[in-house]
Design a protein around this nucleic acid. Sequence first.
DNA 1: TTAAAACATTGTTGTATATCAATATTTTAC
DNA 2: GTAAAATATTGATATACAACAATGTTTTAA
Lengths: 230, 230
Amino acid sequence: MAKFVKAKNCSACPYRSYSLSKLKEKDVDLIQNSCLIVMFKRGENICKQGTEVTHALYLAKGSVKLYIEGKNKNLILKIINERKYIGLQSLFGGGIYNYTVTALEDVQVCMINANIILDLAKKNAEYLFELTKTLSDSTNFVYKKIFDINQKQLRGRLADVLLYFSEEIYKNSIFELKLNRRELAEFSAMSMENAVRILAEYRKDGIIELDGRKFTIKQPDILRKIGELG
Amino acid sequence: MAKFVKAKNCSACPYRSYSLSKLKEKDVDLIQNSCLIVMFKRGENICKQGTEVTHALYLAKGSVKLYIEGKNKNLILKIINERKYIGLQSLFGGGIYNYTVTALEDVQVCMINANIILDLAKKNAEYLFELTKTLSDSTNFVYKKIFDINQKQLRGRLADVLLYFSEEIYKNSIFELKLNRRELAEFSAMSMENAVRILAEYRKDGIIELDGRKFTIKQPDILRKIGELG
DNA sequence: TTAAAACATTGTTGTATATCAATATTTTAC
DNA sequence: GTAAAATATTGATATACAACAATGTTTTAA
């Protein structure tokens, strides 16, 4: 298991959640007292599909993938970046994770006893409202994903994913992807071979440049067109 | 547009939401004063993909389909039954519907000004907690759906859908489906022709009996096996 | 009551995509 | 620094599925 330390000063933490601003000092202390900061290395599981939800998981630092494990292939639903809660719908919903979350690099995760967060949420509407907003946004994102999978074909899906990384995640036309080819494929809902093949097509057509995991988006408008056409 | 009447007595309404029990009387009155009960006929849209969220939508009576509209085909994500909110993630999230909701039969929908619900939610944690729970359950359901679409093939998906209707919705091995063949296909993420074909297979194999929209599940265990194998 | 429209069914064909296979390249570990 | 393992790439093959087409059946409407 990964290393961990006790949280010392959540209020002053540079990675603290915005939602903490909605809590009174004593409630932040309540969280802090229960909070363990756990360090995970790339590839380590932060939570596992099929297991019980015992803690609220807050990603303080780093990025992780949230994916559904299947028999032969996985489907990455989203990449979660620092200063975001992981899997609020499992905390408020079922009680069993129906997905696995794995570190894409070395990350710090704050683990807080689930009941402490749930109790605070039941008492503090402003705090819960913040959490519900992010939960809703996340649900909307997944709806969009489902749409893409169902309506678009390979080229359109991959184009969308590349634009997503460039514009939403790295906010740069040049970026060093944290995913390997298999993960990029699992995020685009296709086989790894086809992801590689289509990347090669885009490179030959001068739409992107490639150097391992370093991507350069040369013609975002063409990608956008491909994504729109499906 | 559909007929509507003003709400008269939400507290005593047989179709009232459980979440109302978390509100004070004056807050129920607030909702009631803003609430219009709108009657939709089968096929009428209750909300439309791409439009702005102006009201909270509560399905008092009847059942509706929530689906993503694509260029050529639609994907029904879920069937919502009476006494459930419709699309809370749009209320708390984006502000634009990224799906359309259409009546499957004659339905009654309570429309309440979005800000009234949002303001109540910001002030009343217990109330919001109820809403967040149902929102989370709904998100989990959609996650399961995405998994099915991505991992299973036609026969497995249709088997799952038939079991879902039998066991979750109608709670009976005999049921009269509210969906036509096209809608059944759109809920199972396949073409209408293939849905019909596979139904015929299942009928020939004695797994189900069919008479128009009247379904009889003869061998649920076989369906379960097919669903598990994919 | 009949025409028209919507819905349902079955067979055929084409294609997008996964899978298999072989090889190349990079990373890891001792 | 080399072997081994993981990752990436490219080509060939197989197939699940959508799309097309033709016909039958039920519902709607005048």
